[in-house]
């Protein structure tokens, strides 16, 4: 099922790539890579879950944040290494990877749970989970701007990856508990804080 969704979503976007150039082309390209990351993480997660026989809750709180964040970390790393280390470009493509990942995850969950999803589910997944994936990938992407300052990069990137995994873990922990609403609210609040502080710094 996951490959059928992947083909039906990624192929039209891939066709769009030939009509674009510059940063918009990068953004669409990295959305497709984000979708591919979601497929890879689905495969790796399933393998780990079945091999170690982990419960659903433990898996969502302790394992999936680590695997998903590490996989999402790869495309911005290569972009930083091979294309550009400019902050504006890297933040754009990192957010695109996160959003692409969230799109694929949302469609997959919608297809397998289509009998009991509702508008609240769509709003929650749309605003909260997408933002969470976008924010965590952007945080790691920020570290890529230091990719050519070796001394700062090697140590800083581990710190940023740890921060994004922890953030993802907090979100999953809250969403899986009775405090689901707080979990949903956290990415939205973080996004607003980042927007406001970025505007303040620019001013």
């Amino acid at each position: 099922m996951v490959y059928i969704i992947f083909i039906s979503v990624a192929v039209p976007l891939f066709m769009l790539l030939f009509l674009m150039d510059g940063q918009p082309r990068n953004i669409v390209g990295f959305v497709i890579l984000g979708i591919a990351c979601a497929v890879s993480s689905y495969e790796i997660n399933s393998l780990i879950k079945h091999t170690y026989n982990i419960t659903d809750f433990n898996f969502k709180v302790f394992i999936s944040p680590v695997t998903e964040e590490l996989i999402k970390f790869i495309p911005p790393l290569f972009f930083g290494l091979l294309a550009s280390d400019k902050r504006k470009n890297i933040i754009g493509v990192s957010m695109a990877v996160g959003i692409g990942f969230a799109v694929m995850e949302n469609i997959y969950l919608l297809v397998i749970n289509c009998s009991y999803v509702n508008i609240f589910w769509a709003l929650m997944r749309g605003f909260s989970t997408s933002l969470m994936h976008g924010i965590t990938t952007t945080v790691v992407g920020l570290g890529m701007t230091f990719i050519h300052k070796k001394k700062l990069f090697y140590t800083g990137i581990f710190g940023l990856a740890s921060a994004s995994i922890t953030y993802h873990g907090i979100y999953n922990l809250l969403v899986e508990s009775k405090y689901e609403y707080i979990g949903i609210f956290i990415p939205i609040l973080t996004y607003l804080v980042i927007l406001l502080s970025a505007r303040k710094i620019t001013d």
Partner: peptide, 22 residues
């Protein structure tokens, strides 16, 4: 050791980076 410990580990990486890199 849990996901939260990764946060502390990340903090230590940054402290190390502040000395080593800056």
């Amino acid at each position: 050791f849990n996901i939260g410990s990764l946060g502390y580990l990340g903090g230590m990486f940054f402290l190390f980076s502040s000395y080593y890199g800056a």
